[in-house]
Design a protein around this nucleic acid. Sequence first.
DNA 1: CTGAAAGCGCTTACAG
DNA 2: CTGAAAGCGCTTACAG
Lengths: 349, 349
Amino acid sequence: MTDPTPPLTDKPSRISTMKDVAERAGVSVATVSLVINDSKNARIGAKTRQRVHDAVDALGYRPNALAQSLANNQSRFIGMVADAIATLPFAGEILRGAQDEAWKNGYVLLVANTDDIPERTKDAISMMNDHQAVGVLYSTWYHRQVEPVKDLERTPAVYVNCYSDSPRDYSIVPDEFQGGALATRMLLEHGHRRVAFINSTEDAPSTVGREKGYRSALADAGIPCDDSLVHRIFPDAVGGFQEAGYSIAGELLDRDKPPTAVFCYNDRVAMGLYEAAKERGLRIPEDIAIIGFDDQEVIAAHLRPGLTSIALPHHEIGVRAVRALLSRIDGGGGGIEYVPCPAVIRYSI
Amino acid sequence: MTDPTPPLTDKPSRISTMKDVAERAGVSVATVSLVINDSKNARIGAKTRQRVHDAVDALGYRPNALAQSLANNQSRFIGMVADAIATLPFAGEILRGAQDEAWKNGYVLLVANTDDIPERTKDAISMMNDHQAVGVLYSTWYHRQVEPVKDLERTPAVYVNCYSDSPRDYSIVPDEFQGGALATRMLLEHGHRRVAFINSTEDAPSTVGREKGYRSALADAGIPCDDSLVHRIFPDAVGGFQEAGYSIAGELLDRDKPPTAVFCYNDRVAMGLYEAAKERGLRIPEDIAIIGFDDQEVIAAHLRPGLTSIALPHHEIGVRAVRALLSRIDGGGGGIEYVPCPAVIRYSI
DNA sequence: CTGAAAGCGCTTACAG
DNA sequence: CTGAAAGCGCTTACAG
């Protein structure tokens, strides 16, 4: 009798297994496994090999990754637990970078959002472990110090965009210092000598690092740092960075000897500066050069003229995070890896 | 001299299995399984039960989720393939909503980014299938029509923030019509009679839907639509929405009978309008009321005064997407589910 | 009330 | 060169 005609419905008969392939090819499942995985130390005849491949194609067979993991006692999952998966465009890029790199290495990302709730973090990590993830990426949406995560101690892990004070933890963070220095140096290279820095009062790696970079670049250029050009604003006031930047900028601009360039802690501050400059009829960059930080596309690219800004290397951080995780699965010490912040050149300097 | 870096992990002896628990409790693995899963149709003595629980606690036992899936022939994975995981703050919220809801139902998200490359989409879907995901969420970062995805035909799937023209596909999208109507109605309720609409020329569900909503709200209020108040701008011109909004706004504002309120296609257009209004010394909202769309925090919340805007319900879309997927795993027809767009009230109307 | 056994889909020595 | 068998960690009838 002939084979019954396949039903016209899409009901995918049943997903085929290795056993189905074996039967169709007239070999054992062991053989199928061997040829599919192209096992080195297994000599299988060319014909048999062909029969197996034909059967695979005919059935559209795809191995059950879960069963493979079980048998291999080794999964292809990388866990990513984030305090905020993508509140800002920011953190999303980390995820994207991690995803790209994981993919390249044949891994897939399991993601979990914690909203920074300890209970959820704990659950998220458990879940990753339950699914035999090879390790977990613990990431935050802005660069900061965090408490060492207890539940991460017995799992290969890397802290992403954050770091703990434990010497055993491994972190990948943006190089705020280098970014601050770069911004300043760029201004200097454009011939500016009076470059101001509008920093934030927050106590964070970004404020501290960027200012150190600023001072270092000045020193390298042999320019004494004029502290009257360094300001710190309270972002928590009404209006946030923008308003605060606006008023401090006014002060700076109205001086007898105003700065000819200013490095802003972030793009929002720069936005305030733009306003202040425009009110005074100052041209950017001719009368006042401005550089921002964070490269928030929505702001930087839409200011007139476009704002030159130092970008946070989120994508690269994500990429390096999985690289670090993968290379650390078999142990490895703690440390902090700094990823350089590139400049995004537009028209404000 | 000792090594300064302590070992990464304290050799976690070996992760314990159900067999370990069984041995320690002096019962069979079957029994362990039964009590752990609190199986209904299984009578296990209270004492035995207790012994098992004690053993579980003592060993810190956690079931291997992969093995469970294999045995149950049913995983707890939901796949999410996105054309852009989080380029904009936008799409990130969908992921977040999906994650939250998946979690609630005991599922975990497998994510993959495709950058809208067909090859990658195919691979991503395969990967989800290989891992026995119960279904996949196919999502785009902005609301649009997409080609039906071939590889999704044999898998429970829901289109998220996009839709195809195939009647078999199920979609969850924002209700642009309702949003447009809501924006307009709010303006009307503030007493405005001459409300303009600055739309975009793009051919997209957003432009079409919002305009229909606008006209419908006008009609409902018994106000004839004055087409001279409806404009369409080319966002592709230099300066994008903002510039285009700025110039068209100028035109509108300089008329003999200018509108007293304007509904902007998006927040960027509104940004341009703000500029034009300020240049003319017009107060917002006293002289001109403005409402935006998209509720892009970076813009809307930072404009002076804060911009009232209609938000895209991304989080809710993510939530409903997994609900829909879960309820559709056993089949179900196609359709489009519209999620209402809420208003975010600030100070511009 | 509880255990022995078969099975989920795969891999990997081990024979032959 | 290829198959039979044991095993990965779990679940679920089926006996008793």
